[in-house]
Amino acid sequence: MDQLASRFFGNTFVLAAEECDLTQPVCVPEDFTELFVLPNIFGQVNRTILLMFLAALIVVVVLWAALRKPKLVPGKFQAAIEALVGFVRDEIAVGIIGPEGVKYFPYLLSIFMFILVGNLFEVTPAINFPITSRMAIPAFLALCTYFIYLVTGFARHKFTYLKEIVWPSYVPIALRPLVGIIELAQYFVIRPFSLAVRLFANLVAGHTMLSLLLATGIIFIGAAIGGEVSILKGGAGILWFAMGLLIFLFELLVSVLQAYIFTLLSAVYIEDAVHFGH
């Protein structure tokens, strides 16, 4: 039961406390993938998958609550959600893509909200785990954006789309093979890969830093109080913990920023496909 609870509520601290070598300056788990690869709770379902559904549920509930009976003169909650949704609609969808951006607005809002909630799980007490630090979501969403802009590009510009990528008419002929190869890699490999890895790597780094700093801080302070280590080590623990709190605030910013960047770049790629060659 204890083990199930730890799997359900997250096992960062349990792992760190069990494996912490108090002689080291920082507690580091033997295998740091343990911070991310969570054990199954039932069947093939682990905590990460449950959190994915929780994130979906939160997005649905929040939007439902704000827009179920929308008032022309919104209350505080409706106004806040409207500001967020309006930002994605007016600044990202229409702002980047243009009037046609309204068509892509549902997708852009979906990725923004889902990634935002998934990122914020990193700094949510009792959750403390960003589901976007697992490659599944970044990879899938990057692929979605990838297919959307490729399909849009080919549907709108037919063969010219591919031709202009491989043999771009806006560069001197001598440079075309080189630019063509770069562009080909750019459109078909680098864009989706960088989109996915940027989000994933940011959240992996953030979660790692937060886990190690906060866990080390708490463990060192606890050990100092218990007399297992010197007062100096306890002081170092306070330092690590304070640094962890600082990173915590920073990660709050990163969570929002990465959700924004992912959505923004998706919009930019789609815009490029819509108005290709302009």
Binding site: V45, I49, M52, A56, R134, A136, F140
Partner: peptide, 11 residues
């Protein structure tokens, strides 16, 4: 795979 499927369904 399980996380990928979970993520796809959730999204």
């Amino acid at each position: 795979l399980p996380e990928l499927i979970g993520g796809i369904i959730a999204f």
